[in-house]
C-alpha cells in the first residue's frame, strides 16, 4: 500500500515509517501540515496517517479540506489528546480512525491495514460475508461453517461479523473493544478473551482447524 505519514515529532515519524516499510508498504513522510495537504491531494494514497497537531495546518483542517474536495482516502488520526470529545471531533471532521499516543506499532499496523482494505465505495452493503469455510448471512443472521449451521449469541455474532469484515487482517484487542462493544477504555475484566474463546469453541466444534487464529502480542485473525 502507498501510505502518507504526516507527523512532526521526528522520533514517532521514524518509528512509524520504519515499521510500515518493513511490512512492505511505500511510505511518504512529512512534518508540515500544508505540505501534507498538498501531497494527499495530488497523489493517490491508500491510507493517510495524520497527526492531529501539525505545524502549518492541523490534521482536522487537512481532512476537512480533502473531504470537501471529495477525496475519500481513509485517514487515521494520531493524537496525544485523549479527550472525551477529541475522538468525536476527529471522526466528525471526516477521519476514519483514531489512535492515541503512545501506541504499540502492532496496533497502528493493524488499523492501517484495516483502513487500506476498506472498500472505497460502500454503495451496496454486502448481505453476506465469507472467509474460508465460514459463511455469514447478514439478513437472516445465520452462520455456517462448511455448511454446518452454528448458533451464536448476538454479541458473538457481532464479534464474528467484525472479524469477517477484516478477514485476512490482524484485528487487535482494542479494535475489537471499540468496534464490537463501543468501549473506548480497557476494562479490568477480560471481555475480549472470553468472548473470543466462546465463539471459537462454537465455530471449532467438530473441526480440526481453529477458525480464529491468535497472533501473539498482536491480536486475532480469520484467514481469508
Amino acid at each position: 500500500m502507498k501510505i502518507l505519514v504526516a507527523e512532526d515529532d521526528n522520533e514517532t515519524a521514524q518509528f512509524v515509517v520504519k515499521g510500515l516499510r518493513e511490512l512492505g508498504h511505500v511510505v511518504d513522510v512529512t512534518g508540515e501540515g500544508r505540505e501534507a495537504f498538498l501531497m494527499a491531494g495530488s497523489e493517490p494514497y491508500d491510507v493517510l496517517v495524520l497527526d492531529r497537531m501539525l505545524p502549518g495546518m492541523d490534521g482536522l483542517a487537512i481532512i476537512r479540506g480533502l473531504r470537501s474536495m471529495e477525496n475519500t482516502t481513509p485517514a487515521l488520526f494520531l493524537t496525544a489528546l485523549d479527550g472525551v470529545s477529541d475522538r468525536v471531533d476527529g471522526l466528525e471532521a471526516g477521519g476514519d480512525d483514531y489512535l492515541v499516543k503512545p501506541f504499540a506499532f502492532s496496533e497502528l499496523a493493524a488499523r492501517v491495514m484495516a483502513l487500506g482494505r476498506r472498500p472505497r465505495q460502500t454503495a451496496h452493503t454486502p448481505t453476506e460475508l465469507a472467509a474460508g469455510d465460514l459463511k455469514m448471512d447478514l439478513l437472516a443472521r445465520t452462520v455456517t461453517r462448511d455448511s454446518k449451521p452454528i448458533t451464536l449469541q448476538p454479541q458473538e455474532f457481532r464479534l464474528l461479523e467484525f472479524l469477517l469484515n477484516n478477514a485476512g487482517q490482524i484485528v487487535t484487542r482494542t479494535m475489537l473493544l471499540e468496534g464490537v462493544w463501543g468501549f473506548h477504555f480497557d476494562p479490568a475484566t477480560s471481555i475480549v478473551e472470553t468472548h473470543i474463546s466462546r465463539l471459537r469453541s462454537k465455530l471449532d466444534d467438530g473441526f480440526d482447524q481453529s477458525a480464529i487464529r491468535t497472533v501473539r502480542g498482536a491480536g486475532y485473525i480469520i484467514d481469508g
Binding site: Q153, P154, Q155, W181, T189, S190, I191, E193, T194, H195
Partner: peptide, 14 residues
Amino acid sequence: ADLADTYRPAMADG
C-alpha cells in the same frame, strides 16, 4: 442489558 451480556461470560469463567 448489552453490558450484562458483555460481562456475563467472563464473569462465569471467573
